[in-house]
Computed example of a mutant assay.
Amino acid sequence: MVIRRVLLDAFGTVFSPREPVFRQYVAVARSYGLQVKEDEVKDAFKQAFKKWAKLHPLYGKHSSPPLDSSQWWSGVIGDTFRQAGVLAADFEPVERELCDTLVRRFWGKEGYELHDDCVPFLRALHSDLAFPPPAIVSNTDTAVFKILDSLEVTAATFEPSEAGIKQDKIWTTWELEKEKRSVEFWEEVLRRLREMTKEAGEAELSPSEVLVVGDEFESDYEAPRKAGLRSLLLRRTTTNGEHARASYQDDERNLRSEDAVASLMDVVEFIKRENEGVRKR
């Protein structure tokens, strides 16, 4: 069947940190006069993130009382520096302002940068394939829209606006209350896509007509396939974005070479080949 819809991962696929997250934490901390070491902050961040994800899953959505994105990340930031050995006497006077600075930094282009292939991909999807903009599927909280808007790829900021990512087509684990590595996440995404195509007067959408593209083997490649969707694993050869996550160390023994792409523009060519092949049958 032809491909009719594209779903894109966000972190590591559309955008990545300008510098490794721990390095940005260190730079901001030092600007507040704190003495910190990169390796200690790197290890402490991993521990703090795991702790908060366990104590307050879904970014604190159902905690008592519920936490918003800023509160959850401020907790991670605070624990990161405490575990990295920063003394309370040094940290407490600057904690609130430092946490706020880092939270806001990672809400936009100061902390993240857009991958070079994203803008031409969105335009090619619109002009060459006559596709609607891709929906975003992200293992994050609601702050992902702020990031995309800051990076100027939403319908309100992109040119042409019709090719920009729409806010009502950004689906996160926070909203769906399911992890991307679960089949249930992708089944819910498919249900929403089907509702939208039905409202648009289109034919019912088959799972095999949906293509997922992302950089995490388990969440973006394997899990969608278990739900019947198609998927491609993004493996850029450039250094840009390599520090987004450690997914390049995933067990990829079940990955077929033809299911890996080095650029989002390769995805456009893949869709052209697949759809042309179907039409010739």
Results as ranks from 00 to 15, higher is better:
Asp116Thr: 10
Asn139Asp: 15
Ala88Cys: 04
Lys51Thr: 13
Lys146Tyr: 04
Asp79Ala: 07
Met196Leu: 15
Phe121Ala: 15
Ala130Met: 00
Phe49Leu: 11
Phe15His: 08
Ala53Val: 02
Ala48Arg: 02
Arg23Lys: 13
Arg82Val: 07
Phe49Trp: 11
Pro20Met: 03
Arg191Gly: 14
Lys61Met: 06
Phe15Cys: 05
Arg279Glu: 07
Glu184Gly: 11
Leu233Val: 04
Pro207Gln: 04
Arg4Trp: 04
Leu255Ser: 12
Val189Phe: 06
Val213Met: 03
Val6Trp: 01
Ser150Leu: 02
Lys54Leu: 06
Leu122Gly: 06
Gln47Pro: 00
Asp9Met: 08
Pro132Ser: 15
Glu175Ile: 05
Thr239Lys: 14
Ala27Glu: 07
Ala200Asn: 12
Glu187Cys: 14
Asn275Pro: 03
Tyr59Asn: 04
Tyr25Ser: 10
Arg191Cys: 08
Ser263Thr: 11
Ser219Ile: 00
Leu233Ala: 04
His62Arg: 12
Cys118Lys: 01
Arg281Ile: 03
Trp52His: 14
Val210Pro: 02
Val2Trp: 00
Ser263Tyr: 02
Glu252Lys: 15
Leu8Pro: 06
Ala130His: 13
Trp72Lys: 01
Glu252Gln: 15
Gln167Gly: 05
Met1Ala: 13
Arg104Leu: 12
Glu188Gly: 04
Arg82Thr: 08
Pro65Trp: 06
Glu92Ala: 13
Val210Thr: 09
Ser63Cys: 12
Phe145Gly: 04
Trp73Pro: 03
Glu177Trp: 03
Val210Asn: 09
Leu125Asn: 10
Leu211Ala: 12
Asn275Gln: 09
Leu234Val: 10
Arg123Glu: 15
Glu175Arg: 07
Thr173Asp: 04
Lys178Asn: 12
Leu58Asn: 10
Gly228His: 00
Glu152Trp: 00
Ala130Ile: 04
Asp39Thr: 09
Lys280Phe: 08
Leu55Met: 10
Gly12Phe: 02
Lys46Pro: 00
Gly111Thr: 02
Arg96Ile: 01
Asp100Ile: 00
Leu148Asn: 05
Glu274Ala: 09
Val144Lys: 07
Ser150Thr: 08
Thr142Trp: 00
Glu187Arg: 14
Gln71Met: 01
Ser208Gly: 07
Glu95Gln: 11
Phe121Asn: 07
Thr239Asp: 11
Tyr221Gln: 06
Leu211Arg: 10
Gly60Trp: 00
Trp52Gln: 08
Ser206Gln: 14
Glu204Pro: 01
Asn240Met: 10
Gly12Tyr: 01
Glu222Ala: 14
Pro20Val: 05
Ala84Glu: 01
Lys51Val: 08
His56Arg: 13
Ala244Val: 00
His243Phe: 02
Tyr59Lys: 02
Pro20Gly: 11
Val183Cys: 08
Leu234Ile: 11
Val268Leu: 13
Ile170Asp: 06
Pro66Leu: 07
Ile147Asp: 04
Glu38Cys: 08
Phe45Asp: 00
Trp174Ala: 14
Ala53Tyr: 03
Asn254Lys: 15
Gly228Phe: 03
Gly214Asn: 02
Arg194Gln: 15
